[in-house]
Write a protein that binds this DNA or RNA. Structure first.
Lengths: 247, 247
DNA sequence: AAGCAATGGTTCCCCGCCATACCTTATGGC
DNA sequence: GCCATAAGGTATGGCGGGGAACCATTGCTT
């Protein structure tokens, strides 16, 4: 067979040649906005950026964006108000899964490679913790971290997940690598989906809280090794929980 | 001001709301194929997947893909041959930057956040090394790793970069997190661009080689802490070099 | 009360990309 | 020698999404 010498190993290309777009622009935009809501970056009653701004951030046209928002409105997740100081507002989730959000969750979680997610998440979190501790947190940054930590302490149970997410996301942002922060946001949205599938155990929350305290302390002390180790244990805890419940 | 209570912190959304597509499908496909070539996943003279296959992998139509390949042909990077056992073949790089590839490189490197790249890279590499060491490398996997390491040892200088990339990519693939592997491929393509901007020092290669040996040994021994530590130093070395040369 | 500014709501047209089908060339097997 | 096969090369029609301009509504400011 001619050309044999130069033939390529079969699937070496797999990591690189991923589809250029996951579905059409509409679906991807929908996914991202849902991510914002799921991550709790916009609290209940909070306002999303104006359509013109949001469309530009997402790199889609306003027309397409409006179709996305239309869907979210029909599902009762957001509400649009016109006029100055109007906008698109996030509605409080109708409690009790009346809107069939449960099926939606199952659908999203169905295709997830749990091991992939958990491993990737740990790598990012541990890395972020290490970076933060290593390159120091100047005054304002230390403040943000402490504030995020404090917010988790006096959180009502229903809002704990959201504040926990924000704490971790803060750490990722302070790592000094925007790419890391973006990737963490993506993977954390998936992790939250997974967590929504399993019961919330108060015992675990208390344990998490102690780890959070120790983690922030290590980071502010600049003790990178300690920060990494604590974060590794923290992630291992969640991972074990998820692996246990998700068959 | 009404609605003040629910207003969103200004740029908390930055990590999530990234453009749904970087440029149009054409550009993104071009970027990915260039990535394959830059990473050396297809050696000189090697064949890319058939157009129909490649188009499907990239999630674009064959028409669009052919426009991309047309550009690459015009630049003398690939060559298409018809008939059975034909295909699209990667041409050896015309030495000495005759084709103005230098400007192309500068252009690509211009907008790169070097700190972001270096940090993110280290996080992924260290994480991959730790995962590989921790969850064990079964027989076939250990073989792949050893083979990749051996290939770097007797590499001609001109091919060292490529084999080094393949070694690291192998580690990323063996981490058990496809997402990590994909992200590493992307960031490594950028790192290679950066490395192309600075001189190649033989002293550094020897040092790297010793680190590679130690790294693989630690991984195969299942010593995660050692693997992580070696990888951290390895990355720090490259990072220092790049920070030094790139202003 | 008038006007301005910021927002959501609507319409139009055009381009890029896709799906499909078909043609052409080269190689190996019968 | 013929033909099946696998690859690149070409042509056409349709439509989803983008850009831009405009309308409608609201509330602050003067």
């Amino acid at each position: 067979m001619p050309g044999d010498a130069g033939d390529t190993a079969p699937d070496r290309l797999t990591p690189v040649l991923r589809p250029v777009r996951a579905g059409n622009g509409f679906e991807e935009a929908l996914e991202q906005i849902l991510q914002v809501v799921r991550l709790g970056l916009v609290p209940d009653g909070g306002r999303l950026p104006a359509e013109r701004v949001l469309a530009e951030r997402l790199g889609i046209s306003r027309v397409t964006l409006r179709e996305v928002l239309k869907v979210l409105q029909d599902q009762g997740l957001v509400e649009s108000r016109r006029g100055r100081y109007g906008g698109t507002f996030v509605l409080p989730r109708p409690r009790g899964g009346a809107a069939g959000g449960e099926d939606e969750l199952r659908r999203r979680v169905a295709g997830v490679d749990v091991e992939d997610v958990l491993r990737f998440r740990e790598v990012l979190e541990v890395g972020a913790a290490g970076l933060c501790a290593a390159h120091g947190t100047g005054g304002e940054r230390a403040g943000r971290l402490r504030a995020a930590l404090a917010a988790t302490r006096d959180a009502p149970l229903a809002d704990y997940r959201r504040r926990d997410t924000l704490l971790h996301l803060t750490l990722a942002e302070l790592s000094g690598s925007p790419t890391l922060a973006a990737q963490y946001a993506a993977v954390r949205a998936t992790v939250n989906d997974l967590l929504d599938c399993i019961p919330l155990l108060v015992r675990n929350l208390e344990h998490s809280q102690r780890q959070h305290d120790a983690l922030v302390e290590a980071v502010l002390d600049g003790d990178a090794d300690a920060a990494r180790e604590i974060m590794r244990e923290h992630c291992a805890g969640t991972a074990a929980l998820l692996r246990g419940f998700l068959t």
